[in-house]
Design a protein around this nucleic acid. Structure first.
Length: 286
DNA sequence: GCGTCCAGGTCTACC
DNA sequence: GGTAGACCTGGACGC
């Protein structure tokens, strides 16, 4: 049985640019049907797995939900969260106003970065992006969902804490990250760490970054990527891909120190992390 | 077939 | 605070 829910879309929202904002739409339990332009996801609510399919219908977003007995308001809250529907990007658009190269961002209503329903899931996925190819990232995340998730949903901290490092090495193919996942899952499941609190933290960005880096496997890049996903854009989150794109677009293909990249985007202030991301991913969106 | 390199980096030991 | 070396995996590449 399929039920439909609807959300009225805000101004300056672009469904496709949000879905394509970064690689998250390729990571389970997300799925993308580009023929019909539907984004699918499997929510884990309690012990239930709830598959949904999200697509545009005029200025509304339609959510097809499989099954019954689910909490409609929670589904709507979660969809608003993953698509960043309540994010205010006026500051971003103001910071790039009149900029020749970046005019398309405001024009398209781009700048919203797709995220998972929980910071925990984004944290685990971010660790899966470090020091490996994108193909291996997808493989690790697929394995987590297939082997530890409930009916296609992303595994809970409890489920991830219930297996040992050998399981992560042998089944998830997580390599040296294996003990990091056990330690993280145990801390979250045991209440010692609450990544969800990062969404509303009063800490300054440098202090919050420091907190994030206490998690094993989270360094500068991973922390700054997570900061973007909790709505703070004053870190560039430089990784090998972003650096190579900068060299191609702004430095005649030649490598340069990170400080030069930082200088280039300094003028965009607290929005610089989002500006560099939009600047380097223009071809994905347009 | 085999060895090397490197990808959406981070940790630890050492200075 | 800065840096060298180690670290899983798997695909690409050269030989």
């Amino acid at each position: 049985m399929t039920q439909a829910l609807y959300i009225t879309l805000p101004e300056h929202f672009n469904f496709r640019s949000t879905v394509y904002s970064h690689g998250w739409c390729e990571l389970a339990p997300f799925g993308l049907d580009t023929e019909n332009w539907r984004l699918s996801y499997v929510f884990g609510h309690g012990n239930a797995a709830i598959p949904v399919s999200v697509y545009e219908q005029g200025r509304r977003l339609r959510i097809d939900v499989e099954g019954d007995g689910f909490d409609k308001q929670q589904i709507i809250r979660d969809v608003r969260h993953i698509l960043r529907l309540d994010d205010d990007l006026e500051g971003l658009y103001t910071s790039i106003a009149g900029h020749e190269r970046l005019g398309w961002v405001a024009q398209k209503g781009a700048g919203r970065l797709l995220r998972s329903p929980t910071v925990f899931e984004d944290l685990v996925k971010t660790i899966c992006t470090t020091n490996c190819s994108w193909g291996l990232t997808k493989s690790m995340v697929n394995n987590l969902v297939d082997k530890l998730g409930e009916s296609g949903a992303f595994p809970t901290p409890g489920a991830m804490a219930a297996v040992d490092p050998d399981f992560y090495r042998d089944e998830i193919r997580a390599g040296y990250r294996s003990p990091y996942f056990v330690e993280l899952a145990e801390a979250v499941a045991g209440g010692k760490l609450d990544p969800e609190s990062w969404l509303t933290s009063d800490l300054s960005t440098p202090e919050l970054k420091k907190e994030m880096k206490k998690v094993k496997g989270v360094g500068d890049y991973a922390a700054e990527n997570l900061l973007k996903l909790v709505g703070r854009y004053d870190g560039l989150a430089l990784d090998s891909w972003l650096r190579s794109q900068f060299y191609k677009n702004h430095n005649k293909q030649k490598p340069c120190p990170d400080k030069k990249i930082e200088r280039h985007y300094k003028k965009f202030g607290q929005w610089r992390g989002l500006v560099i991301w939009c600047d380097m991913t223009e071809k994905w969106i347009n």
